[in-house]
Design a protein around this nucleic acid. Structure first.
Lengths: 252, 252
DNA sequence: TAGTGGTCTAGACCACCTG
DNA sequence: AGGTGGTCTAGACCACTAC
């Protein structure tokens, strides 16, 4: 029985066997592209791991790893004894670890930043606990207002260890915090965040240009680098008509 | 050089080589437990893949897979040419795909449910689009109020394809929606959700026992089964002082 | 019974980091 | 220079599903 999809012949042409890009990655990338743009239709069945391997001259583990990659992204479903199938209909994007600035950039809006505060302060208790330092230790405090196409989106308060005290206001106004950190060789790998809601407080209504007593969406985040050291603690509040959190969850 | 951790001798005793539990899974499970309870301390370095394999009589790929499992969970960090290290300090739990009911159950509170509406209705346009059916098609509509230890937590409105119209009010009051679906052989695998905030509307203030005009946290969710077919569309609103969303993000 | 994916083995070569 | 993880190969056996 062979009602498998026969994908475009050139899908896997020009595999680069010598370059630095892993084969499984080249394959999963091309497969993903073909699924997303419909060249491999939703619901269709894929050829066998072994079959693919033979046609491409690859070992089964390599093909398997490429496929597994897409299973993890929720694009493929596998059942033992049955085969591999493209999910029906819904093709979802992955949850990614980005800053608001990058979110706005990628959504084709023009991000703007106003730095409202930028100073070294003694760490309040909650901040100290989150960053894993002693209360009262000097930390960098930054308060910014973010806008998109001129409309206020968020007020962001961040605390960083004093090792980052030399970050400049210029940098903060032209780039996202995570971009600045990455340029310093710090990669954020894990973030714990808590999303909630409350009434606007203090000067937030003015800054977000909403009525007094309006609801705001809140997010608290602690971000860690590759070795698990806390790099940033943030308390942000968003104007709910200009920003929502979208996530895609995939069960293990 | 060997400043590697020597973990408790019995950590990998009693590996079951014949049973149905994969070896890599047994290993990653025990490793995870040892890391979480501190038997393997934060920041310490692990033995080499090959070294572990030799001591346990396992091949490198098997050991590698077990380790990779924990890297994906954010508990281990690997660097080529260096080694594998337990993450410093912060040990995080995984994001999971659960319903509110299960969230409350696992947090040791007593969940309560009041079914406010339970009927078959023609699908509104937005619902039809989310579920992938024609507008006006019959769908099951359920509106519930959830509470925890007697305090209102959320109002949940769900729409399901009419195939699920035989779900009973009794079931809805005693179990979570996802538990009911699972008992029918439907496993939720992917969910897209959007989290936001707004003012309370209509009867929500009364039901949540908050002041008129109070902010509420909102969540919209479309859930899909293993083959990508939409199973459930939900619009929920939460009392922000009794519920927040907590997530852990791990960069690829 | 035939075919699928799930697991596992025992090697190999390479890029990268540390000394 | 030596050791690490990253990748890849070519097999093998098994559990499960469909026919």
């Amino acid at each position: 029985m062979n009602d498998d999809v026969v994908w475009p012949d050139d899908l896997f042409a020009d595999l680069d066997r010598t370059g630095p890009v892993p084969l499984y990655f080249q394959i999963s990338n091309r497969l993903e592209a073909a699924i997303r743009d419909g060249r491999i239709p939703a619901g269709s069945r894929l050829e066998t791991e072994i079959g693919i391997g033979q046609r491409l001259g690859l070992s089964r583990p390599t093909v398997r790893r490429a496929i597994q990659e897409l299973v993890g992204k929720g694009l493929l479903v596998r059942r033992r004894g049955v085969g591999t199938q493209v999910v029906h209909g819904q093709v979802t994007r992955q949850v990614e670890l980005t800053s608001l600035y990058e979110d706005l950039q990628s959504s084709q809006h023009e991000p703007g930043t106003t730095v409202l505060a930028h100073e070294v302060v003694p760490a309040p208790e909650k901040v100290a606990e989150s960053l894993g330092v002693d209360p009262g230790t000097d930390v960098l405090f930054v308060r910014r207002r973010r806008s998109s196409d001129g409309v206020p989106v968020a007020i962001m308060e961040n605390y960083l260890p004093s090792a980052y005290a030399d970050i400049t206001t210029d940098q903060l106004e032209s780039r996202g915090l995570y971009q600045i950190l990455r340029a310093r060789g710090v990669t954020i790998r894990v973030a714990k965040q808590r999303i909630g809601a409350r009434r606007e407080e203090r000067d937030e209504a003015d800054l977000l240009e909403v009525d007094k007593g309006s609801p705001v969406l809140t997010m608290e985040r602690v971000a860690y680098d590759a070795t698990g050291r806390a790099v940033e603690f943030g308390q942000h509040c968003y104007r709910p008509d200009t920003y929502t959190f979208e996530t895609t969850l995939i069960a293990k």
